[in-house]
């Protein structure tokens, strides 16, 4: 049924730290690696070694330049995958019932056997979290690694989404955002976790932690101590270069 549940017991999701993400794309690779050989149809590539490669990804990392009114520009790496919205517009538009949000943990999933590949759910998602697989012709999306997080065949440390497990800078955190005592909820409270496109009314479960202000070397007093030593001592070339400069001037 593509009606949304009125309430989910838990809200499993991700907290992504834009302050510590280094933009290495390891989460993109591990996501594709795990999900191409587990839940549902493989994540295909088209023309992978050709001139115009393209493929299905459930997680992509954008990079943005933020230019404050004063001071140096900052680079912010921005991973983006399904936000498992409470008010998921992708679910209600589905004509076949293939898209659904689970009552027990809030994960938004696609039953690929019922997907007719109409693409309407991808239109309804403001975040670009759903991509049609060009080989399987069904809609693919982040499953929050539903086949890892409950998988008792895996060591306990691995029972988190592949992207979280692999992140070398600890920029990705997984947990229950409905529980105010959980580590992810505390992180969101402490760091001012935010929603993406709140005006769209999707009520995303995933939260983003804003980047902290970076060091401002250009505005610091400390730089003045060394500045005299770093200032250029001469504008005129000497020695061989000085001769060459004069010689060329005379030509």
């Amino acid at each position: 049924m593509t009606s949304l549940p009125t309430h989910t017991q838990r809200k499993l999701g991700l907290v992504i730290d834009l302050d510590t993400c280094v933009g290495c794309h390891a989460c993109v690779v591990s996501c594709k690696g795990w999900n191409t050989e587990n839940y549902g149809a493989p994540l295909s590539d088209q023309d992978p070694y050709g001139a115009e490669p393209s493929g299905t990804f459930l997680n992509r990392v954008h990079s943005y330049e933020v230019q404050p009114t004063d001071g140096a520009a900052q680079l912010v790496h921005f991973p983006k995958s399904c936000l498992h919205c409470d008010n998921a517009p992708c679910v209600t538009v589905c004509p076949t019932g293939a898209s659904y949000k689970r009552q027990e943990d809030g994960i938004v999933l696609v039953n690929e056997d019922a997907c007719i590949g109409c693409g309407l759910c991808a239109w309804a998602c403001p975040y670009g979290a759903r991509e049609m697989d060009m080989a399987a012709k069904v809609m693919k999306k982040c499953t929050l690694c539903v086949d890892r997080i409950y998988n008792e065949n895996l060591p306990e440390v691995d029972r988190v989404p592949a992207c979280v497990r692999t992140c070398p800078s600890n920029a990705r955190h997984f947990g229950d955002l409905a529980d105010p005592g959980s580590a992810v909820s505390q992180l969101v409270a402490a760091r001012g976790g935010m929603d993406l496109m709140p005006e769209q009314g999707t009520a995303p479960v995933n939260k983003y932690l804003p980047p902290r202000i970076k060091d401002r070397l250009d505005q610091s007093d400390q730089i003045d101590i060394l500045a005299p030593f770093l200032a250029p001592v001469t504008d005129q070339p000497k020695g061989f270069l000085g001769w060459l400069d004069k010689a060329l001037d005379r030509l």
């Binding site: 330049e65 933020v66 230019q67 404050p68 680079l75």
Partner: peptide, 8 residues
């Protein structure tokens, strides 16, 4: 934080 530009 400031003016945003898609960098990559």
């Amino acid at each position: 934080a400031g003016q945003i530009r898609a960098f990559e």
